[in-house]
Design a protein around this nucleic acid. Structure first.
Lengths: 329, 329
DNA sequence: TTGAAAGCGTTACCAT
DNA sequence: ATGGTAACGCTTTCAA
């Protein structure tokens, strides 16, 4: 690898001059500029980012911390983040924490040791780590925490919509599979749904889940249908859960959506491929990633940030696990 | 951030000594050791990886290049790679290239500028980039290229299995949706299938696809059923394609698997959630990621590498888009 | 307009 | 057993 010295020697100038043309700052004679450019070309030189980072005490790297990229919700988030950051020449240092605080700390530490300029985290542990928060720009994604910069979707409204749609489409006996309460956006969905359900003229019951995984959902789905056989509407808290419920419902011979309506949450790519295709609440996941990246970029550049918390709207995606609503006229 | 100098001052020793205890090499008195440890503790010091990288001319970073993490095949791959690398303290610099050579080059360049110690790539363009291949350890994942280190699944055998299973389970008129020929592992599936089909007593036809995307597959599926209405067995080349075909088949009223059997390839997580659940060929994706990481680690440490190409076995996952095979007895 | 030199935080060599 | 110091490749004063 050629260094700046090689280029300087080749061009017959000092390294300072080369540095100037590299960074396009300071005066440099037209002719010298040419010579340097040629030398760079000839030696196929490109600057060592590590040396740069060392001097500037910051890199062009951003740390991205996810619970688990294997969960279908996250790839698009990550893509949104990456695409946005990439435009400005930033690269991603990437890690999955499995929500394990140890792993999480290990990742954050090494990210910091590598002098990342910013951090984006979609993990719960991180958002709770209040003390000893790294002194670099940080944005929480799909998580919230008092005093932090955050980007998330409107869970409350999402929950409300689910309840409304279920009720409007004729469910009278609704079961909601409630996700873990310590994850705020998930809790919000629940709150929104209950708010509407409580003021509607329907029965409803809630089953508490420790995690929103397929495995647990399979189990809970069985309980659901044996414990509440009259259920004719289900809010599944996320699409993975909904898929498990749907599978179980079909297995025991329920007709969907005629016997039971099901609504998920997230609109992960698989949802439209289920059969029947899953009605769900769409979070603008890719956009959430983008927004988080944009917010972080502003923070890094110390630009004025108007809103510390960015809430994105959700929308109902009508597919085939809900009945058609009767139109008037 | 405290530096090694601060620690030295705090402990009343020289930076050289601190460096020695940090790296556990060279002599250092028991008592001095203690003092230094205390100073480190007290100042909450951790070494600057960037400075280390600069001096050593290599980092603890590995570059991972993927076509698109949003494609459900890749998250598990990435996880396999990460988990394995993480054990040894390596971190991932991560990028999606969309198979765009420009983007690809940009990522590789910056990875190199950040002095990654190794590269893992699952992109096609990269494997073709023969000249000017970076002089650092590199392994190709799910791609092959003459002279490179590679990890991939046995596509040929996979193709054979698909053909055999389709035939054994009673299909007589088989359509294969062939993926892009320039991706070797995809081409292999095709070759394997044709090998068996050609020597079987069945009809078969092939439809060429430019990409294995859902969008194109939806289109091709329509052509398939109108052009070859007698098709009673389909090899879909990957699970995404299979999902699209399945959807279309159901839509036009085919009974699956009675009228038409469908077999996919990959066994992405969604496959078992489709309805009917998709029969497919399972690639050990997570393990492929691990193996690639292990191979890279060996390369980095200049350990003896026995096989330059690691081929992993595939297996048939019987679900509900294929008929039950008749058992003798 | 250009160059010399200091310094970013480490490590490793050479003395002592 | 310990310390001084050059070096890694770059940027940025400061002086010329």
């Amino acid at each position: 690898m050629a260094t700046i010295k090689d280029v300087a020697a080749e061009a017959g100038v000092s390294v300072a001059t080369v540095s100037r043309v590299l960074n396009g700052k300071g005066y440099v004679h037209e002719e010298t500029l040419m010579r340097v450019r040629e030398a760079i070309e000839k030696l196929n030189y490109s600057p060592n980012e590590v040396a740069r980072s060392l001097f500037k005490r910051e890199s062009k790297l951003v740390g991205l911390l996810l619970p688990d990229i294997t969960n279908p919700f996250f790839p698009e988030l990550a893509r949104g983040v990456e695409d946005e950051l990439q435009k400005q020449g930033f690269r991603l240092l990437f890690g999955n924490s499995d929500e394990d605080p140890e792993k999480e700390k290990a990742y954050i530490d090494t990210f910091l040791q590598n002098q990342v300029v910013g951090l984006i985290s979609a993990t719960q542990a991180f958002s709770q780590l209040n003390d000893e928060r790294p002194a670099i720009p940080t944005v929480l994604l799909d998580r919230t925490h008092e005093g932090s910069y955050t980007v998330y979707a409107d869970g409350i409204e999402g929950g409300r919509i689910v309840a409304r749609e279920l009720v409007n489409r004729g469910s009278h006996n609704i079961t909601v599979l409630k996700g873990p309460g310590h994850i705020q956006p998930v809790q919000d969905r629940f709150l929104g749904a209950v708010e509407v359900l409580a003021s509607s003229n329907v029965n409803f019951q809630v089953i508490q889940m420790a995690s929103l995984t397929y495995e647990e959902a399979e189990q809970r789905a069985k309980e659901l249908f044996s414990q509440y056989p009259d259920t004719d509407g289900i809010f599944a808290s996320n699409d993975i859960t909904a898929a498990a419920v749907l599978h179980e419902a079909l297995r025991i011979g329920k007709s969907i959506p005629d016997d039971v309506q099901i609504i998920g949450f997230d609109d992960i790519p698989m949802s439209r491929l289920l059969f029947p295709a899953l009605s769900t609440i769409r979070q603008p996941v890719y956009e959430m990633g983008q927004q988080a990246a944009q917010l972080l970029l502003k923070l890094i550049k110390k630009e004025q940030v108007i809103e510390q918390n960015i809430q994105l709207p959700v929308s109902f995606i009508e597919r085939n696990t809900t009945r058609k609503v009767k139109r008037n006229g």
